[in-house]
Amino acid sequence: MGFKLLSKLLVYLTASIMAIASPLAFSVDSSGEYPTVSEIPVGEVRLYQIADGVWSHIATQSFDGAVYPSNGLIVRDGDELLLIDTAWGAKNTAALLAEIEKQIGLPVTRAVSTHFHDDRVGGVDVLRAAGVATYASPSTRRLAEVEGNEIPTHSLEGLSSSGDAVRFGPVELFYPGAAHSTDNLIVYVPSASVLYGGCAIYELSRTSAGNVADADLAEWPTSIERIQQHYPEAQFVIPGHGLPGGLDLLKHTTNVVKAHTNRSVVE
C-alpha cells in the first residue's frame, strides 16, 4: 500500500471513529477524501466538511520552486461564519470567499490569524475590503508590521502568557507558548472536538522541520505538551499544512522538532 493511500485511509478511519463516538456532533463529509496538494491548482481553494458547521479550507501556493498546501478553518456561528487564517495570499483568499459563498452561503463576518507569517495573514486586506472584521493577538499584529505583512485590524486580548485561553464565538483560542513562531495560536472547536494546530503542528508525513527561522526550538516541545494537557479530548487535529489526523500529530511534531534540534547540535 502506497504512503499517500495509507495517509488518506488514516484520515478516513479517524473521521469514521469520530462519527461513531459522537453521532450528534459529527456529520463528516462523505463526498470524498481530504484534498491534497496535487489536486488543488494554485489560485483555487477546496472546502472539506469535518463536522456539522465545521470545515477546513485548503489552498496551495508556490514557494521556492515548489507547491505547498495550506489549511485553515471555518466555523459556523449562528447565521454567520468565523474564518481562521487566510488562504495564503490575496488571490487565494478572494477564491476562498467565493467558494464559501458557493458552498455554504453564509457571510464571513470575523477572521482570526493564528500567527504573523504570510500563509496566515496574506489576504487580510481582501477580507477587510469584503467587510470582514480581522483579528490577531497584539504580538501577531506587531510582528506582521515588522515583517511588512498585512496586519489584522483588531487585537485579541488575554493571550499574552503561555497557557492563556479565551473564548471567541464558537471557538476557544489558546496560546501554548512559542513553537513554530513566538505568537502562534491554537484554535479548538469544543462542539466538535476539532483542534486546529496551525503551523505549530505537523502532518504525519512530514519528517523535516522546514521553516524554523522564527521558531523557538527549545520551547516548542513544552508548548505541545500544554496543548495535549489542555485538549486531551480532541479527536480531529488539523495541521497548518497537509493531512489531518488525531492527537498523534502532536507527538510526531515533537519528535521531528527534537530530531532537528539534535542534528543542529551535532553539526
Rank of each mutant, 00 (worst) to 15 (best):
249 L>F: 06
212 V>A: 09
13 L>C: 15
119 D>T: 00
195 L>E: 00
65 G>T: 09
11 V>Q: 08
193 S>V: 07
163 G>A: 06
157 E>M: 12
178 A>P: 14
131 G>M: 06
111 A>W: 03
32 G>M: 08
136 A>M: 03
48 Y>W: 14
199 C>P: 02
175 Y>R: 00
253 T>Y: 03
248 D>R: 07
26 F>Q: 14
261 T>Q: 12
14 T>D: 10
55 W>L: 02
131 G>P: 04
140 T>C: 04
235 Q>D: 12
58 I>K: 04
68 Y>S: 09
1 M>P: 00
139 S>N: 11
244 P>Q: 03
258 K>D: 09
196 Y>A: 00
181 S>R: 02
133 A>G: 09
228 Q>D: 07
224 I>W: 02
18 M>T: 12
262 N>A: 13
244 P>H: 04
243 L>T: 15
28 V>S: 12
250 L>G: 00
138 P>F: 08
138 P>E: 10
54 V>L: 06
263 R>W: 10
197 G>K: 00
61 Q>F: 07
53 G>S: 10
83 L>K: 00
114 T>I: 02
11 V>C: 15
192 A>Y: 07
90 A>Q: 11
266 V>I: 09
211 N>I: 08
226 R>V: 07
220 W>T: 00
67 V>E: 15
4 K>T: 11
209 A>I: 08
245 G>M: 02
233 E>H: 13
241 H>M: 00
93 T>D: 00
179 A>Q: 02
193 S>K: 14
172 E>Y: 05
233 E>Y: 12
128 R>D: 11
134 T>M: 05
156 L>P: 06
164 D>Y: 07
106 L>T: 08
141 R>W: 03
23 P>L: 12
25 A>H: 15
85 D>K: 00
56 S>N: 15
56 S>C: 15
232 P>D: 07
176 P>C: 00
54 V>G: 03
107 P>T: 14
59 A>E: 08
261 T>A: 12
161 S>R: 14
14 T>Q: 09
34 Y>A: 08
227 I>G: 02
131 G>L: 06
120 R>M: 01
218 A>Y: 14
42 V>S: 15
154 H>I: 09
89 G>Q: 00
246 G>T: 12
261 T>M: 13
250 L>D: 00
93 T>V: 00
125 D>F: 05
250 L>H: 05
232 P>I: 07
158 G>P: 06
213 A>P: 12
225 E>Y: 14
229 Q>L: 13
256 V>P: 00
117 H>Q: 05
144 A>G: 04
8 K>F: 09
42 V>R: 10
221 P>A: 10
3 F>V: 13
243 L>H: 15
98 A>Y: 10
158 G>L: 06
12 Y>N: 11
107 P>Q: 12
198 G>K: 02
168 F>M: 10
8 K>H: 07
239 P>T: 01
119 D>I: 02
163 G>V: 05
82 L>M: 10
127 L>I: 03
9 L>D: 13
123 G>Q: 04
29 D>H: 10
214 D>Q: 08
242 G>S: 05
204 L>W: 09
233 E>D: 13
60 T>D: 03
83 L>V: 09
253 T>K: 03
63 F>Q: 10
179 A>F: 05
161 S>W: 10
263 R>N: 15
36 T>R: 13
104 I>N: 06
6 L>S: 15
82 L>T: 08
226 R>Q: 08
2 G>D: 14
100 I>F: 05
137 S>M: 12
222 T>M: 12
177 G>D: 06
206 R>I: 10
133 A>E: 14
119 D>S: 01
262 N>H: 10
15 A>Y: 12
241 H>F: 00
4 K>P: 06
125 D>R: 08
33 E>L: 09
101 E>W: 09
155 S>A: 14
220 W>L: 03
40 I>H: 05
76 R>F: 06
